[in-house]
Computed example of a mutant assay.
Amino acid sequence: MTVPIIHRPIEKLAVPTDGLVHYGRNPRRGDVPVIVESLKHNGQYKPIVVRAGTNEVLAGNHTLKAAREMGWDQMAATFVDVDDDEAARIVLVHNQSNDLAGYDDAALQELLEELPDLAGTGFTDDDLNDMADGAEEAAENSSLVERFGVPPFSVLHARGGAWAARKAAWKDVGIHSEVGRTADMVYGSPQTKYTNWYEVRNAADMRAGRRLSDREVLDECSGELVAAADWGTSIFDPVLTELMYRWFCPPYGRVLDRGPATASVGWWLPGWAGSTPAWSCAASRWLRMRTRPGWRMGRSGDAGRCAWYG
């Protein structure tokens, strides 16, 4: 038998362990070896909670089990006079409150590192090493976020909170993705324009007994084709633009782009616009940002022959 180690302030609460009963419907499955290790090094520093009249343990079932494994014949206990419902609630909240608790990881790591060893803490050297690795990874990710906005090659979620917040910030400085973009700016293949293209063309080929050209299908089956609701104009996303420049462009490089999103991430740019509406829209954005770039009008392939504006 091991002599119980019960801290002096609660020694007067000691009762025989053989008279205590485990709560039969306890859903918790505790780690008894960890509790045994704690009792060996720390002793019992808080009483278990027992229901008066039935001697059922409501809080501390696995502590009782660990004490019995160690051969303890006494434990400190407090008794509460409760009915069945109240007993069940105490059991449940005792377990759930532990589950809902969390850690300040940095404070936890610091506390563990200050101890000469981890005996009786419930933590192992492997746990501490994992914390250190996790802290280094978090610091690295934080650095990547500062540099790139989102760490390169991450899975991007355009509807996520961070993306939406960044897009809202761009809107606050005058970026409205649809302004200045006329219809039919995307690649106009029928395969992308019509949602039922292949179904209609296959049926047309069957009727004709041969492979029809796209033009023939369009001429003969225009009434059957259903255009995609979002087809026709590409929508500029300032957040995606910002990320692509951060990920793939060298610092202080030159980018042919008329947009504020480019300059915001540290690249020098000559403003570039392929049409007057596009130039006007971009210029109005720059004015709201109180910045004045230089401009060239025309095709990027003719950069050497185009006049500057600004």
Rank of each mutant, 00 (worst) to 15 (best):
D105G: 07
P270G: 09
E113F: 03
W197S: 02
G223S: 14
P190N: 14
T182N: 08
G43L: 02
V91G: 07
A135I: 03
N196G: 06
D105V: 09
I48H: 03
G60E: 04
D125N: 12
Y252I: 00
E56Y: 10
R211H: 10
A87S: 13
G71K: 09
G223D: 15
T195H: 02
T63D: 02
A261Q: 11
G266P: 01
V80A: 05
L108E: 01
A106N: 04
T262V: 12
P251Q: 14
D18I: 01
H94L: 01
N141S: 08
C221K: 12
Y187T: 13
V15I: 11
H22E: 13
A162C: 00
V50E: 09
V93E: 13
F79N: 01
Q109P: 00
G174M: 06
T78E: 14
P270A: 10
D18M: 02
V173H: 15
D184Q: 13
G266C: 04
E113L: 13
D184I: 02
A87H: 10
K171P: 00
S177D: 10
C306Q: 11
G259T: 09
S143R: 15
E137S: 01
L39Y: 06
C221H: 10
Q74E: 11
A263Q: 07
M75D: 05
E113Y: 06
G304A: 15
V93F: 14
G60W: 05
G209P: 00
G53S: 13
V173A: 07
P116R: 14
A87D: 11
G223N: 12
D214T: 03
L269Y: 06
L128S: 01
W197C: 05
V49R: 05
T291R: 12
D133Y: 14
L108T: 07
Y245H: 14
V91K: 03
V217N: 10
A164N: 09
T192Y: 12
E69M: 11
G274A: 08
G253A: 15
A101F: 01
V145W: 02
S275A: 12
A282L: 15
E114K: 10
